[in-house]
């Protein structure tokens, strides 16, 4: 498909469970309008949602960005926050430090990061303790 260039950045607030997920829903609606095929649409939406929710739950706030060109969809996050002490552990299915508030709301399966990695065609995570975390994901079109 030949999608027009598109760039959009969403601010994501710490612990704002009321609006959590709205950026991802918006991303999904936009990509669907662009005609992105359903399998890719699902993978991008799931990854965006998990990334957005991690910003809400684990960071002190940050941004989620979407970029679309002819061949790729890029999702990236950048946050300020505690960072991740042990990235290898954090990437493991089932690993979670979600607190009781987050668990009570249905988070904390420890599946967000591994699921992002699985759904993206390329996945990169960088984190600095006490500063923040950045994630870059690429999805190939066609």
């Amino acid at each position: 498909m030949s999608a027009p260039a598109l760039q959009k950045t969403y601010q994501v607030q710490h612990r704002d469970f009321g609006t959590a997920g709205e950026a991802s829903a918006d991303i999904k609606r936009m990509l669907r309008q662009l005609g992105v095929q359903s399998d890719i649409l699902r993978r991008v939406s799931v990854a965006a949602y998990e990334a957005e929710l991690n910003l809400v739950i684990h960071s002190l706030g940050g941004q989620l960005s979407l970029e679309v060109d002819t061949h790729h969809i890029q999702l990236s996050t950048s946050d300020t926050g505690p960072g991740i002490a042990d990235l290898e552990a954090a990437m493991r299915a089932g690993f979670s430090t979600a607190d009781d508030e987050a668990r009570g709301m249905g988070f904390g399966a420890g599946m967000g990061l591994p699921n992002m990695k699985r759904n993206a065609d390329a996945f990169d995570i960088q984190s600095t303790l006490g500063q923040g975390t950045q994630i870059a994901m690429t999805f190939n079109l066609s």
Binding site: L53, G106, F107, A109, G110, M111, N115
Partner: peptide
């Protein structure tokens, strides 16, 4: 069935 939505998403 699940109460953890990330499990559903995964």
């Amino acid at each position: 069935c699940s109460d953890l939505m990330s499990d559903v998403l995964a």
